[in-house]
Design a binder for these strands. Structure first.
Lengths: 178, 178
DNA sequence: ATTACTATACTATTTGGACGGTTTTGTTTC
DNA sequence: GAAACAAAACCGTCCAAATAGTATAGTAAT
């Protein structure tokens, strides 16, 4: 798998550091060490810290987008497919995805402008969800609820019990099929 | 003239810096200057940066708690009062409250343990909401949706149009009255 | 005397990033 | 196929700037 995964190695290392040690420990040296590369080598791939964080965001936004659009396309039922896809991917995949959380936190801390790719993605999803054959307000609520779930966990504000989480998920999913 | 609001001035200054300039610019010097106090004076009140952030969190958590419990007590209808109060306070008051956002971001960045007062508050609210005379799952969804709304804005991920926000709010509110 | 500061100077450490050099890999020419 | 060269990938050191926190001497009001 060689050479092309070098950049990915670095991005993963950066995510790991943010997740495990917090934003203030995301230093070039720490990332280099975690990725098994020298500081110079790191700066070769990402010429500045901002570029590194930008890389993180672009990577996670791309991944997330792909998953959601693929999932929607595979849905047999037309009505509600975007809402379902968003719900499913967010709950079952991105949820535990450290990259997402780390990238968000890093971008917010370093430079809010770097969040643009994510904003762009969300804008599109919101549009799709509102034109999904469902009641737009209810669809939006579904979206907000699942976002509330992962954002509150990302923030360590609270975490509902697994049981209740599953129940919420099933209920929201059922709403997309009404 | 016990200018006892000195500590509050400092906390407000800190919030303003985080909101306007981001977490990395929350330095002791910057806070002192923004608060119109010397660095020594700042350290007199908050002996370390961590203590300052702790102060921020405690202050916002206290405020938030008070508002919600006051609001719930004033509700004429018993059923759903906690859910309504949470919804109302979050949407109409804490929402634009920069203190909340700044405190959260600062605590998450500096030391996640500092979020404990908020976690404690949320734990209680979740308990109240689940025993509010409403369907617990639906009540939880209401809570999650409104959290999704302010957290996604706090994060600058997306912002729905005002119109739609109001609609969502009204719909959620109606659900607490069913 | 105590509380609540101001003002300045200082230390010790960290950090982003520049820089110059080296190794690896790939391509062309003989 | 080997030599010659070029480009990409990478290393390790150096440095100026910034920062948390300490120290200290002094002020003003209660």
């Amino acid at each position: 798998m060689g050479r092309n995964s070098r950049k990915l190695d670095i991005l993963e290392a950066a995510s790991k550091i943010v997740t495990d040690r917090g934003i203030f420990n995301l230093t070039l040296e720490a990332v280099a060490e975690e990725a098994g590369i020298s500081k110079g080598g790191l700066l070769y791939h990402f010429p500045s810290k901002e570029a590194l964080v930008q890389g993180m965001v672009e990577h996670l936004a791309g991944n997330y987008r792909e998953k959601i659009s693929k999932n929607a396309k595979e849905d047999a039922e037309e009505k509600g497919k975007w809402t379902r896809s968003f719900l499913d991917v967010t709950f079952n995949q991105s949820y535990q995805n450290k990259d997402m959380n780390a990238g968000l936190l890093a971008a917010k801390a370093v430079n809010s402008d770097l969040l643009e790719p994510i904003r762009e993605a969300y804008k599109q999803w919101q549009h799709n969800i509102e034109n999904d054959g469902l009641d737009p307000v209810k669809a939006t609520i579904i979206r907000l609820a699942i976002d509330g779930m992962w954002l509150s966990e990302l923030f360590d504000i609270y975490q509902i019990e697994k049981e209740k989480k599953e129940e919420v998920y099933r209920t929201l999913m059922a709403w997309t099929e009404e």
